[in-house]
Amino acid sequence: MAIQQQVKNRNIPQLLSLAILGVLLLLYAPLLLHWLDGWLHKNISTEHEYFSHGLIGLPFAAYLVWLQRKQWQRLPNIIHPLGPVLLLVGGVFYLSGVAEWVNLSFPAILAGLCLWFKGMPGLKLQGFPLLLIFFATPTAGPYLIAPYTLPLQSFIAGTAGFILNQFGMEVTVDGVNLYVGGRIVEVAPYCAGLKMLFTTMYVSLMLLYWTGALSSRRITSWFLVIAILISISANILRNTALTFFHGTGQEAAFKWLHEGWGGDLYSGCMLLLLLPLLNRINCYFSTVTDSEAEAEG
């Protein structure tokens, strides 16, 4: 009887976890599928496309949670007072029917569950996966930022015009507009490279965490700064190419790079540069650290 009681006691937490997982799937599977379909087929709002890095971030977050499952089980069962509050807030957001709030209810409920079952240690353990989920959750952030990108738009337009002038093209720059070949090309707010910048920062955080370099402030700072510069430079070159294609009447090439899979290919190649960049920075600071240790010795 005692053995049977122990087996039952062990099964209760497992059954409870499965039940909660089932409820979460029922509630959020349609939402996640909506995000996935919108990101893949680009039939979601422009603002939500800014979060398409969730295509790699959400599976990676789930993978990290799976890797940490044994550490999670070893944590003591502690209920943090903030847990029920976040669950309540998440529930209210979900039932509100407002798309923005329904989206935000997902990370809120996940964080609430961590605090409900394992307290602050559980939240700290799952902190990075939750961060990835939060930054992949579509919000109105890009829409709110767009009005403040005018200086960046003007800088991109001016730089693209300067580059094309060096190749003999007659380009006139007026604010965020470029006039070339009797045509006008506007560097709109959504062409300012924010999407590429968000994706670059997101992927950079993933790489820093995966390689363990996130614990080094020097490596993290240098890597993020250089990654941002690469992203801005890549976007300037992309806008330069778009201006060239549109100004010379190559509409097929323009659409391919602007709206087609060419833009995704270009962004993917740019993101691949982050891998050797991080390796180079790691090697450099490892060498510097060894040299400093030898000097002190």
Rank of each mutant, 00 (worst) to 15 (best):
F51E: 03
A252V: 14
L88P: 01
V203A: 05
L18M: 15
I236G: 01
G119R: 06
A146P: 04
A111M: 07
L194Q: 12
F162I: 10
I12P: 01
Y202C: 10
N279K: 14
R280G: 07
V225L: 09
G263E: 02
T240Y: 01
V85D: 02
F285M: 09
Q6P: 03
F135V: 09
F162E: 10
G182E: 06
L207A: 10
K8N: 13
K195S: 12
R238I: 08
G263R: 04
L24C: 07
N239W: 07
C114N: 06
W261Y: 11
L110G: 00
F128K: 06
E100N: 08
L207W: 04
H53K: 06
K8A: 13
F245W: 05
L40V: 13
H34V: 09
I12G: 07
H34L: 12
Q71C: 04
I133E: 00
P76S: 11
Y28I: 11
F135P: 01
S17Q: 13
L32N: 03
L26W: 11
L242W: 00
L33M: 12
P59C: 06
F244P: 00
P81D: 11
C283L: 14
A62G: 09
G57N: 08
H48P: 00
R183Y: 11
F51D: 01
L95H: 09
S17Y: 11
I226M: 04
D37N: 14
G181S: 05
K124I: 12
S221P: 03
I156F: 02
W116M: 13
R238F: 06
L178C: 08
L26D: 07
N279T: 13
T137A: 01
V89P: 00
I145W: 05
N103K: 05
Q14Y: 15
L95I: 12
A234D: 09
I232C: 08
V7P: 01
Y148H: 15
E294G: 06
I226S: 04
P276D: 10
F223D: 02
G22Y: 11
F244I: 09
Q153A: 02
Q4M: 12
N177C: 11
H48M: 10
A136T: 07
G54Q: 04
R238P: 02
A140T: 14
F167H: 02
